[in-house]
């Protein structure tokens, strides 16, 4: 179902297995290859509301596999400016393309300084290798 294990260098990572692609004052968020692999077949993703505020380290949505529900933790704080409706109707995109078409939300950053506290790809790779 999924792609090869990968952790792109241009992303920043949260230890709860979430990624952020930071572009100026905005960031796109999703879950990592490791997270989708642990979950198994993702069968349900209900995108949150545009305009909602999310807080770093707090759950902002859920994904469900056949067997289990998992909280998705916000790697950064901010206001949701876009959600991936397509992943809502095709949740398997979260397995097949976790860093691309399987993105979850786009936020306007509340505190750009928070990004300094995220892991780079090498540090996250070490974390999941344990």
């Amino acid at each position: 179902m999924a792609t090869e294990e990968s952790y792109p260098e241009d992303l920043r990572y949260h230890p709860e297995h979430d990624w952020a692609r930071i572009e100026g004052e905005e960031a796109t968020l999703g879950i990592t290859w490791f997270a989708q692999d642990s979950l198994g077949d993702v069968v349900f993703f209900d995108p949150p509301e545009v305009g909602a505020t999310i807080a770093k380290d707090e759950p902002y949505t859920e994904v469900e596999s056949v067997k289990a529900v998992s909280d998705v933790i916000a790697p950064l704080s901010g206001e949701i400016v876009a959600v991936n409706e397509r992943a809502g109707t095709n949740p398997e995109l979260i397995n097949t393309d976790p860093y691309g078409e399987g993105w979850m939300v786009r936020i306007r950053l509340g505190d750009p300084g928070e990004a300094d506290r995220l892991l780079d790809a090498a540090a996250y790779r070490d974390l999941v290798a344990d």
Binding site: M1, G40, D41, V43, S65, V66, K67
Partner: peptide, 11 residues
Amino acid sequence: PVQYEGVAAEH
């Protein structure tokens, strides 16, 4: 074993 390749594919 809870799954090999994936629950849906096995089902």
